[in-house]
Amino acid sequence: MAERVRVKFMMPPGHIRTPAFLRGKVGEIERELGQFSNPEQLAYGLAADQRPLYRVRFTMQEIWGDAAECPTDTLDAEIFGHWLEKV
């Protein structure tokens, strides 16, 4: 069974590549993508840490609740490991 993760519900300032509409939502790891430079440092010309990046699959039901157009459709997004917590 795929690993279930929750996107941390944080609203820090700065250059963030985690879409706000996915914060706090639970999805499954679709695949691991490897290590990538942390954009939150890279964007400011800082020496960037290497961070694991994942493709996480969410159902539209999870993202939009009763307002979902079709609850079983899905959305995949790339989320850095430091934004994810195990469920």
Binding site: R17, T18, P19, L33, F36, P39, L53, R55, C70, T72, D73, T74, L75, D76, A77, E78, I79, F80
Partner: peptide
Amino acid sequence: DSVTVRVHDSTADM
């Protein structure tokens, strides 16, 4: 309805 729509949001390096 029998077709699942998968949206792919290019949020980072892919």
